[in-house]
């Protein structure tokens, strides 16, 4: 089979498995009590939890299928490193979903997501910066890989607070990475990116407002780690960093206002529901400043409006990322 056919089949497999399995998983989760309250709704309905398993398995099935047909050694190494990273981070997320890990433990464990990339040497130790050619980072780059995986996975996890925000904003970042891969001529890596995007697109109808399933830490940490890995192997570090800015903004302000790593239960909710069932800022001095707080600074809003705000912010970042790409490849 040619690579084009195998790629299309891998993308379809990833999409179909995630889409169909989620339908059955939701019934299974509700039947077995694997549910959580959707706290931003007036009646706080019970919603299936840990749906991220279906995203992870869908991506793994697509990538294993791709792996079994490709002949190029370099491509095989990259696919394998993505699969291994995904397994490591999904395991951390799954353990956290079952038995809450401390914030510090979880963060340290996500650093291990970079190990497959380091061991299999599935990276190039240079970065393309705007206005210049490549900056060689032979000594520093390997140290940055585990940091990048830990930052992206935890930042996406922190952003997964409202219905549909995680898949929508992640898809926007992944689109920027895919476009950079095309411009860089990394077409093999583009296929991996599309397999991941296919699974997220299949997850979106179930997670969009009103959500039928939550991804849990299994899903959000895994998607975040994949954004990190793909930006490394597609050589889209700078573009991904700019497109990822709303996630960084959200995560960074949470960390700064909570004075370090804290578990969700330890943090005072930054957003509360008022009598009119609208979301508003928690004005307690101990409440962290997150992206939602900045959206709500001009008054209360419903969840749908807030979700739109997240998407607009992500699209704006993506636009700036594309402008940066233009500065990097067209101007210099």
């Amino acid at each position: 089979m040619t690579l084009a056919v195998v790629s299309i089949l891998a993308i379809l497999l990833s999409f179909t498995f995630t889409y169909i399995s989620l339908r059955y998983y939701i019934k299974f989760a509700i039947l077995h009590g694997i549910t959580g309250k959707d706290i931003h709704k007036p009646d706080q309905p019970e919603v299936a939890e840990i749906g991220g398993i279906c995203i992870v398995v869908g991506i793994i099935i697509g990538l294993v299928f791709l792996f079994s047909f490709i002949l190029e050694n370099d491509f095989k190494v990259k696919v394998l490193s993505v699969i291994l990273t995904l397994i490591i981070i999904a395991t951390v997320g799954f353990i956290d979903d079952l038995k809450t890990l401390s914030a510090l433990k979880k963060t340290i464990l996500t650093f291990f997501g970079g190990v497959p990339l380091l061991l299999l040497k599935a990276y190039y130790p240079y970065i393309k910066l705007p206005f210049t050619s490549f900056a060689r980072l032979y000594y520093v780059y390997p140290f940055l890989i585990p940091v990048a995986i830990a930052v992206t996975s935890n930042a996406v996890n922190m952003m997964d607070v409202f219905n549909g925000v995680m898949p929508l904003t992640s898809l926007i970042v992944l689109t920027c990475i895919a476009l950079t891969a095309i411009i860089n001529g990394h077409f093999n890596e583009l296929i991996i990116c599309l397999v991941v995007m296919a699974s997220l697109i299949a997850y979106l109808p179930y997670n969009k407002y009103p959500a039928k399933v939550f991804s849990g830490d299994t899903g959000s940490l895994s998607v975040g780690a994949l954004i990190g890995v793909l930006s490394i192997i597609c050589k889209a570090e700078v573009v991904a960093f700019i497109a990822f800015m709303p996630f960084i903004l959200n995560g960074f302000h949470t960390l700064m206002s909570t004075h370090g790593l804290r578990e969700k239960a330890e943090i005072i909710r930054p957003v509360i529901i008022n009598e009119e069932y609208k979301l508003e800022i928690n004005k307690s001095p101990e409440a962290p400043i997150v992206l939602a707080s900045l959206f709500l600074i001009n008054g209360p809003a419903d969840e749908r409006t807030l979700i739109k705000c997240y998407v607009v912010a992500s699209l704006f970042s993506a636009l700036l990322a594309l402008l940066t790409m233009y500065l990097m490849y067209m101007v210099s």
């Binding site: 800015m245 709303p246 903004l249 992206l291 900045l294 959206f295 709500l296 600074i297 001009n298 809003a301 409006t305 705000c309 607009v312 912010a313 704006f316 970042s317 700036l320």
Partner: peptide, 10 residues
């Protein structure tokens, strides 16, 4: 609502 976040991002 988004204005301030967009300004920060820019």
């Amino acid at each position: 609502r988004v204005k301030i976040v967009l300004i920060i991002i820019f």
